[in-house]
Simulated scan of single mutants.
Amino acid sequence: MTDPTVLPQDLLPSSRKLAKLTAIALLVAAVLLVTVVLPAEYGVDPTGLGTRLGLTALSTGTASTGNAETPATRVAESSLEPSAGSPLTAVWKSPTPYRNDVQTVTLAPNQGIEVKARMKAGERFMFSWKAEGGAVSVDMHGEKLQAAQDEFTSYWKGRDQTEAHGQFQAPFDGTHGWYWRNRGQTPVTITVQTSGFYEKLYRL
């Protein structure tokens, strides 16, 4: 009686055929390794086919996934410093109390006057000033503490100005403010309002 689990000898592949099939399988595996596995897993693309197929992107984590974030994207974002205006920098705190001030000065023809705020670096205020009776020349500037005479930094200069509004942040410890000069023939009255964080506002 013939054992049904044993194939007849003439149905079994020969050793030569087995060797040929093994060689073909190894060749296919080698081709897949070079063209698919190496580009996708390690970014190695000796044939250039992986790049054309977009497989090398998989090794760097930059493959497109629609709207979903990749881990590489999340890591990159978490390592960034907070940008200006982001929720992480929305609150600015000052050890200096908030205050409001108003100064009114009258300039005779060809007269100049300064109004300054004493501030620490980083402190800031909102300002608004208006000239009545004529236009003036203005130099908004600041001096460092214990600066030499005539040593200052100009932030903004203008001629024939009648008003200005904005925000200022002190770049260094010192005094910061305005110098106005009346170059007209009639008196000019300037009213300046400030609100923010600084030690005091005063006229020189």
Rank of each mutant, 00 (worst) to 15 (best):
M1R: 01
M1L: 12
D3T: 10
L11W: 13
L11R: 11
S15F: 12
S15A: 14
A19C: 13
A19F: 08
L21F: 14
T22C: 15
I24D: 14
I24R: 03
L27S: 07
T35P: 01
V36L: 02
V37P: 07
L38R: 00
L38G: 08
P39Q: 06
G43H: 11
R52D: 08
G54T: 04
L55W: 01
A57F: 06
L58V: 05
T62E: 15
A63Y: 05
G66A: 04
A68Y: 02
E69S: 15
T70E: 06
T73W: 05
S78W: 02
L80W: 08
P82Q: 07
G85A: 12
V91T: 12
K93V: 11
S94Y: 13
T96V: 07
P97K: 09
Y98C: 13
D101E: 13
V105L: 03
T106I: 12
I113Y: 00
E114C: 06
M119R: 04
G122S: 04
E123W: 01
F125C: 07
A131H: 00
G133W: 00
A135V: 02
V136N: 04
S137H: 07
V138F: 02
H141K: 02
T153L: 06
S154P: 05
D160P: 09
D160Q: 14
T162Q: 06
Q167I: 14
P171M: 12
T175F: 07
H176Y: 01
W178R: 04
T189N: 05
Q193D: 11
T194E: 09
S195L: 12
F197Y: 10
E199M: 13
Y202L: 02
